[in-house]
Computed example of a mutant assay.
Amino acid sequence: MRRGASAAAAAGVAAALAVAFAQAVDEDAGAVHPFPGVGVLMANGEHWCTASVVDSPKGTVVATAAHCVAPAGEDGEPGEVAHDGREIGDLSFAPAFTGEGPGRQPLGVWKVKAVHVDERWTRWGEDTADYAFLSVEPDEDGRTVQQAVQEAVGGAREAPVPDWTSGYEREVTVVGYPESARNPENRPVSCSTRTAHDEDDPAMLYIGCAGFWTGTSGSPFIADRGGPGSPGHLIGVLSGGDTDVDSTAALFDERARALYERAAQD
């Protein structure tokens, strides 16, 4: 799900901004997903948004956008349904998801146990609070998400550490899953670029990268990434944008940290 996503974008812009589709997991060849901690947030088993593992003591915390998991409030009153009028449904997380149709879940599917969202979102719908932290239950084999991801990449830690005091201008890699209508093989799209203040709302982060269609809400903004074993720092998650090229994110702050710490204790 993606708020304000455009129905069209210029192909030349995509080339100019050097968006690269990440290689999907090849189970038969044993290839490693380049972003194993990033995956699809599902509602009632269907691709709903993007989410990602974030480093935590128990390894059970996932980050996404608030509008993916809770209706926006208005005038101090809670919302009733998601912004598009649909029920959000039962949530689960499939890291490293890929493949046509129902796809493959090489690292399993984890049921969301608890959702932690700032009341600035649930009561007022403030864009600067459009982030959420989820705690997930162990999979059927008793593994936590982080443990599964570590195993998948040969033991290298892949979960970025949250950064609560980041500035607005950072070199980041953003990774997300567009909806299957525009991405039938369900491969994640990634872009490495520099963030800035959004012109329309300077309190929000802005990036210009084509390909971030509906479904990429919640995509992690990862700074200082150095590849496997050097996962970097998570500074925010994709919130919205007027087109698939223009994307915004709410920068993590101390209120985000409080939500994360609650999720980490679940």
Score class of each variant (00 low, 15 high):
G76Y: 03
D130H: 02
L41Y: 01
R120E: 05
A258L: 12
W164T: 14
F35V: 05
R194N: 14
E185K: 15
S180R: 14
P102V: 12
E46C: 06
N186F: 04
A16Q: 11
T195N: 10
A24L: 07
D246S: 11
V145Y: 06
T243I: 07
D246R: 04
Q265V: 05
R255P: 01
H67N: 14
L238I: 00
R187Q: 08
C49S: 14
P162K: 13
L238W: 02
M204I: 10
G12A: 13
V32F: 11
D163E: 15
A8D: 15
A72V: 06
L259I: 08
S239D: 06
R262Q: 15
T60D: 12
I88R: 06
P228T: 06
I235H: 08
A132Q: 03
G218I: 05
P202A: 10
Q23F: 00
A22Y: 00
T195I: 05
E27M: 09
E87N: 11
S92T: 07
E100V: 08
G226T: 13
A14Y: 09
T50V: 13
A8W: 13
L17H: 04
P95V: 09
V245L: 14
P184W: 00
R120C: 00
A5L: 10
G99L: 04
V161P: 05
A250T: 03
V32N: 11
H233F: 14
V25R: 04
G215Y: 05
P231Y: 07
A156F: 15
S219W: 12
E119C: 06
T248K: 09
H116C: 10
A223K: 06
V54S: 10
P102N: 07
S52D: 09
S247L: 05
P178W: 02
G85R: 04
D198A: 11
V189L: 07
S192V: 13
S166F: 01
M42F: 11
I207N: 01
L41D: 03
A14H: 12
G79K: 02
E140D: 13
R187W: 00
Y206A: 13
K58S: 12
V172M: 13
W121Y: 03
D200R: 08
V172R: 08
P178T: 11
I222R: 10
G39F: 05
V19N: 03
H47S: 11
S166I: 08
F212G: 03
R170W: 08
T216Q: 09
E171P: 06
F93P: 03
F21I: 07
Y177R: 15
S230K: 15
A8H: 13
F97H: 15
E126R: 09
K58N: 15
G229M: 13
I88W: 04
G79N: 04
G176N: 09
L205K: 00
R3S: 11
G229A: 07
P34H: 10
S230M: 14
D55Q: 15
G226A: 12
S135V: 00
V32G: 08
A152N: 10
G236I: 10
Q23S: 04
Q23D: 09
A223M: 05
P178A: 08
P138Y: 05
A210H: 10
V115K: 05
G76N: 06
H33A: 14
E126L: 06
E169I: 14
V115C: 07
M204P: 03
P95Q: 08
S219R: 14
N183F: 02
W110P: 02
